[in-house]
């Protein structure tokens, strides 16, 4: 039993592209690029994992994606379809706990504080999702919302990573380049060379509360903001269920 809060961040893997592969079996295992209509303009909305080795990822111009991946499968965005599968995922999460915060169309936070074995619970959840929807998700587990948000990104697709300090080799001990949404490396004194690229990617500037960064120090995972241990667990915000979000 883990003392304190247990928060899951569940992120559907390449969600839009995965739904397209699910609804068109011919696309399974092929590089799929989801973009708006017409299929020659605008930017890429999502790319399957098969497309990513070619440099195709969300946000790049479609014209560039076509150059990088001339044999890719370019399909138009179908929002109602994605919302349907998003709702199905949500109904599964609500079977696990009523404390669910829908963070985006393909991401949620689950508050599983008090859960005797979060790791097994996460494995069961991943299996249930695969069985009932055919989709895969990556799960991060941590003592707040920020750490699992970072952790779920470390082992994609179909990953399971926890961010509890000193909890063994399955955690994020080897994490040396993190993404802290809304914060830059220099703002929280991250040692040089750690995560600069990712921090820049999020851009912004100093914003929000003290960041929580997980990195390896003397062989042990450390939770907290380097240079400031005042808030070692980072974001203490609650998992905001739909009820709590209503005015």
């Amino acid at each position: 039993m883990i003392e304190g809060r247990v928060i899951f961040h569940v992120d559907a893997d390449a969600f839009f592209a995965s739904v397209e592969q699910l609804t068109d079996p011919r696309l399974k295992g092929k590089p799929v690029v989801v973009c708006g209509l017409p299929l020659e303009h605008g930017v890429v909305t999502a790319a399957s994992y098969e497309a990513r080795p070619y440099g195709v990822e969300a946000g790049i111009p479609v014209a560039l994606a076509r150059k990088l991946l001339p044999d890719g499968y370019f399909v138009p965005v179908n929002i109602p379809k994605y919302l349907f599968f998003s709702t199905r995922l949500l109904s599964i999460y609500l079977q696990v706990t009523p404390r669910v915060e829908a963070y985006s169309v393909d991401e949620v936070f689950l508050d599983l504080t008090g859960e005797a074995d979060p790791w097994c619970r996460a494995v069961d959840l991943k299996r249930q999702i695969a069985r009932e929807t055919g989709l895969t998700v990556s799960v991060g587990i941590g003592p707040n919302k920020l750490v699992p948000k970072i952790a779920s990104d470390l082992d994609k697709p179909d990953g399971l990573t926890h961010g509890f300090a000193g909890t063994g080799p399955t955690g994020i001990r080897a994490f040396t380049g993190g993404t802290v949404p809304g914060n830059r490396a220099e703002d929280c004194g991250v040692p040089e060379g750690i995560g600069d690229r990712h921090f820049r990617r999020f851009g912004g500037g100093a914003s929000g509360p003290i960041a929580t960064v997980v990195w390896e120090e003397r062989g042990e995972a450390v939770l907290g903001c380097p240079g400031s241990r005042r808030n070692p667990c980072g974001d203490a915000g609650p998992v905001a269920t739909a009820e709590k979000q209503r005015p």
Binding site: L22, D24, P80, K81, F85
Partner: peptide
């Protein structure tokens, strides 16, 4: 039937099927 999903147009449900 490879997959199916649905949405609503007003109060009316639309059910989609991808078939081969």
């Amino acid at each position: 039937v490879a997959s199916s999903w649905s949405d609503y147009e007003g109060q009316y449900k639309r059910v989609y099927f991808s078939v081969m």
